[in-house]
Amino acid sequence: MHPSRSTVLLTGSTGVIGTSLLPALAARHDVTALFRNRKPDGPAVCVEGDLTAEGLGMSTSERRALAAKIDIIVHCAGLTGMTPPDLTAFDTINAEGTRSILHLAEEARVPVLLLSSAAAAFQVPGEDLTARRMRAYSSSKRRAEELAAHCSQPVAIVRPALLFAARNATTAPLHQFPHALITALLQGRAGGLPVNPDHWCDVLPIELLIDYLTALTDALLSGDGSAATLHWVTAGQARLTAADIERACLDYLTETGRPPTGPLLAPPAASRPRSHGMARIAQLGFQPPEHPALPSHLDRLLPGQLTRPAALEALARSVRLCAP
Score class of each variant (00 low, 15 high):
Cys151Ser: 14
Met58Lys: 02
Pro303Tyr: 09
Arg64Gln: 15
Thr171Ser: 15
Ala282Ser: 12
Pro3Thr: 10
Ser152Pro: 05
Pro295Asn: 06
Asp128Glu: 08
Leu298Met: 12
Val8Phe: 00
Ala310Val: 10
Arg274Val: 15
Gly55Tyr: 08
Gly225Thr: 11
Leu253Gln: 14
Leu66Ser: 03
Pro125Met: 06
Ala120Glu: 12
Pro268Gly: 12
Thr88Trp: 09
Gly188Tyr: 04
Ala77Leu: 06
Val112Met: 01
Gln283His: 07
Tyr252Ile: 08
Leu204Thr: 03
Thr98Val: 04
Glu62Phe: 06
Ala293Ile: 06
Gln287Arg: 15
Tyr212Ala: 00
Leu10Asn: 08
Pro267Leu: 01
Arg133His: 12
Arg38Gly: 07
Gly97Pro: 05
Pro194Phe: 00
Met134Tyr: 00
Ala270Met: 13
Leu284His: 02
Leu147Glu: 08
Ser138Gly: 14
Ser152Lys: 14
Met134Ala: 00
His2Arg: 15
Met82Gly: 15
Trp200Ala: 00
Ile70Trp: 01
Arg320Gly: 08
Asp50Phe: 02
Phe122Thr: 15
Ala24Asp: 10
Thr130Tyr: 00
Leu213Ile: 05
Leu51Glu: 04
Ser20Ile: 02
His150Phe: 08
Val124Met: 14
Leu250Ala: 03
Pro273Gln: 10
Pro154Thr: 00
Thr307Glu: 10
Asp50His: 13
Ile72Leu: 14
Asp244Gly: 09
Val31Leu: 06
Val319Met: 11
Arg167Lys: 15
Tyr212Trp: 03
Ser6Phe: 05
Phe164Tyr: 15
Arg274Thr: 15
Arg99Gln: 12
His150Asp: 14
Ala65Tyr: 00
Ala65Asn: 06
Tyr212Asp: 02
Leu51Tyr: 05
Ile206Leu: 12
Pro205Arg: 06
Asp41Tyr: 06
Met278Thr: 12
Arg38Ala: 13
Leu113Lys: 09
Ala67Val: 02
Ser4Trp: 12
Leu163Phe: 14
Pro85Phe: 01
Val47His: 05
Tyr212Leu: 01
Ser116Trp: 07
Gln237Phe: 09
Arg247Glu: 15
Ala316Phe: 01
Pro40Glu: 05
Ala270Thr: 14
Gln283Ala: 11
Leu204Tyr: 03
Ala270Ser: 14
Gly12Lys: 04
Ala316Cys: 10
Pro288Arg: 03
Gly57Pro: 03
Leu250Asp: 06
Val112Phe: 00
Ala44Pro: 07
Pro260Trp: 03
Gly49Pro: 10
Ala105Tyr: 03
Leu284Glu: 04
Arg5Thr: 13
Glu290Thr: 09
Arg133Leu: 02
Gly192Cys: 05
Gln176Lys: 12
His150Gly: 09
Leu193Trp: 00
Arg63Pro: 11
Leu312Phe: 09
Leu315Phe: 07
Glu127Asn: 15
